[in-house]
Amino acid sequence: MADNEKLIKKSDVILLVVVLTMALFAVVYIMSAKEKGTKLRISVDGEVMEEFYLSEDREHQITTDKGGNLVVIEDGEVDVIEADCPDKVCVNHVPVDEVGETIICLPHKLVLEIVE
């Protein structure tokens, strides 16, 4: 570093402010998005298959040519309790109940999303 170079440049401060502002917005966004959902949308390969209201408890078996997943709606929460996919990411996923939260089963191209 040349001796005449400043210890802190204007660009450094701008960088710091931008990073902190972005992080702050991200925090605010995530906090505000935390809203209990009422409806579950089930999509396979990008196509909406079914929608269920979370107010009613139910068990729903999804079977496609790629395999099956057993979805449970209980106390307003959605969870996958059984699946014959190899990785079991969807089964291990915690139950979801907030708008925007998803449980995804990549091998079956299945997306469970709380929509509203």
Binding site: M1, E5, K6, K9, S11, L15, L16, V19
Partner: peptide, 14 residues
């Protein structure tokens, strides 16, 4: 060469 050591360090830390 946009930043001084401070900017470089912030990018490095993140």
């Amino acid at each position: 060469k946009i930043f001084s050591a401070m900017g470089v360090s912030i990018c490095g830390a993140i």
